[in-house]
């Protein structure tokens, strides 16, 4: 019941239908959540850190941990790509409100891309925008 005007959608990212973004550099993907997601969640108060060394699976919730929580609810992070979790952004874990301020500068985790062909399953900017618009109606 809000709309997507005024939200930021960077060009150089890939997107999921569950509102994660991935920045792909070589065989490393940096992952965060989109401004559409932070806007829906409002008041992000806690980031449950993903577990380094675990293997993420494309489109599946991170296991055993990995979620973004607002005052109201916990929302799982669905990994945009499969691969081993290499790094977690401790700054965001310590100060989750950074995700409200700038969800693109503040990534959540990095993974080593396990299967590059999975990148084709992700949205580019325009289809992702259309997907957000459709969710609004």
């Amino acid at each position: 019941m809000s709309d997507i005007t005024g939200l930021e959608f960077p060009e150089d990212l890939k997107y999921t239908k569950t509102h994660e973004w991935a920045k792909i550099e070589g065989d490393i993907a940096t992952v965060g959540i989109t401004q559409y997601a932070t806007h829906q969640l409002t008041d992000i108060v806690y980031v449950e850190a993903p577990v380094i060394g675990e293997n993420a699976v494309q489109s599946k919730e991170l296991e055993p941990e990995g979620a973004v929580e607002s005052v109201k609810a916990s929302t799982p992070i669905y990994s945009p790509l499969s691969g081993e979790i290499l790094e977690v952004n401790e700054e965001v874990v310590d100060a989750p409100e950074m995700l409200n301020d700038d969800p693109y500068a503040n990534w959540i985790y990095k993974l080593k891309i396990g299967d590059a062909s999975e990148i084709d399953n992700l949205f580019d900017l325009d289809p992702y925008k259309k997907h957000c618009e459709a969710e609004e109606h």
Partner: peptide, 19 residues
């Protein structure tokens, strides 16, 4: 207000932020 359907009523979850 950020309006939602709450137990069948059209009500706001928040206007600015919950905090």
């Amino acid at each position: 207000g950020n309006m939602v359907d709450f137990s069948g009523f059209y009500l706001p979850t928040h206007y600015t932020s919950i905090t």
